[in-house]
Design a protein around this nucleic acid. Structure first.
Lengths: 227, 227
DNA sequence: CCATCATTCAACAGATTTATTGAATAATGC
DNA sequence: GCATTATTCAATAAATCTGTTGAATGATGG
């Protein structure tokens, strides 16, 4: 982590860039970052969500802090971590894109969710915006209620995965549904799409999650609006 | 590298994404990728440029191939590697951006090249295009001649770092100079800017390198045009 | 088919990373 | 001050990653 200044500047730069890459190169850390993409979180909550021991989560967070990916703020007994920058979201999205395009294995995993690969094409932000204006789509937010309450796409319905089946009848079968959830990594939306499609709905998922939507300066609602 | 299918799909995805990140999380591999961003290269040439043993370079390349970052093609005795996809360029650029924004250490290294930090602001592709049309800038390509011959920005001058000082007098001091070289990581352009600025020229560097320019679908010249 | 060259493979030691444990620090409320 | 809670630190063992070496493979040309 500490760099020798004896190296050539070029090598020193590469070493620094590699340090950034290393900081995201671990499944647990990616999971932590996905959580943090939703907003500030305490160490305890993060550890719980990602199923890590507190000490381990703390260690990973510190590692990422050293690399400049996250920063921590102490408030009373708690330390709240957050992403330092929107550029971190870009990085996560870039990793996902490379993985999706290049890795047969990701394909295999994703295919487990979908019968028909072609129709899993995600909807871009721009396309969704346009179709929302025309009233053509039902926007579905599949995140937990507390995250939804803190901000969601305008007019979105919040239905968690577990409740989805029960509430199916209330969904308009003629409108296309667009599901979204967290960051670039959220798998909930994949699962929701798979479930709804199996029931005959026309569903796609949003390319990115809420953090990217927010980062793009698009409108976010905070009022709860339930099915 | 090989993944247990016993994991939850979510964990499996994270593991795959982490594998991609790991594949770029090493200074030597970043150096190799920078070379590959210029175009196909044989293992031997890569090993030489990055100062690695052949076996070591081969190992790193295979590692990256497994992660889907590069792909190899055999032609006679040689194996030529190339980036599988433009999405890899995005990933490299994203890493650099995070590092530049967040890491004090990168700052320190870069500052070693520049006296005056504010004026090191890079020029965006769009801005450069516009100023090129208006004839306001001299575009300077500081890559080796062979790379230049294979493609460069329209009207660019090719002067390598070593020759730069000798050819100074032929540069128009009233026009702004924009220097560029390889990918997002190329340090040559930083050095060129530092040198020229020390001589009183008005210089900035292009935000990205040639690969990004090409990937954006912008025009590339192949005729050699010398100072 | 043999010699040569480019690349890959296999095996090993050395270095780095990770998860776990238990102790240390920091802030709070009584 | 003292007990409690949240987080960090330190030490350790297990796992993984790196670079080197020398041998194996694949392709070419005589």
């Amino acid at each position: 982590m500490t760099q020798k200044s004896s190296e050539s500047p070029k090598q020193a730069l590469f070493a620094q860039f590699a340090a950034v890459a290393k900081a995201v190169a671990h499944p647990h850390r990616l999971a932590l970052l996905e959580q943090l993409a939703q907003g500030e979180r305490s160490v305890e909550l993060l550890a719980d969500r990602v199923h890590l021991s507190i000490a381990n989560a703390s260690q990973h967070l510190q590692h990422m802090r050293q690399a400049g990916l996250v920063s921590g703020r102490r408030d009373g007994k708690f330390v709240f971590y957050r992403l330092t920058d929107d550029s971190v979201l870009d990085l996560l999205a870039a990793i996902q894109r490379v993985a999706e395009r290049n890795l047969a294995e990701v394909d295999r995993v994703v295919r487990g969710y979908f019968n028909d690969r072609d129709s899993m094409e995600p909807v871009s932000r721009a396309e969704l915006l346009e179709r929302m204006k025309l009233g053509l789509v039902t926007v579905l937010d599949v995140r937990p209620a507390d995250e939804f309450a803190l901000g969601h796409l305008p007019g979105a319905l919040n239905v968690q995965l577990g409740e989805l089946e029960r509430r199916l009848t209330k969904l308009n079968k003629s409108k296309e549904i667009v599901a979204y959830c967290r960051g670039p990594y959220c798998v909930l939306s994949y699962e929701a799409v798979a479930l709804l499609r199996a029931r005959g709905f026309k569903v796609r998922r949003l390319q990115d999650g809420l953090p990217e939507w927010r980062a793009a300066g698009l409108p976010v609602e905070t009022t709860t609006q339930r099915l």
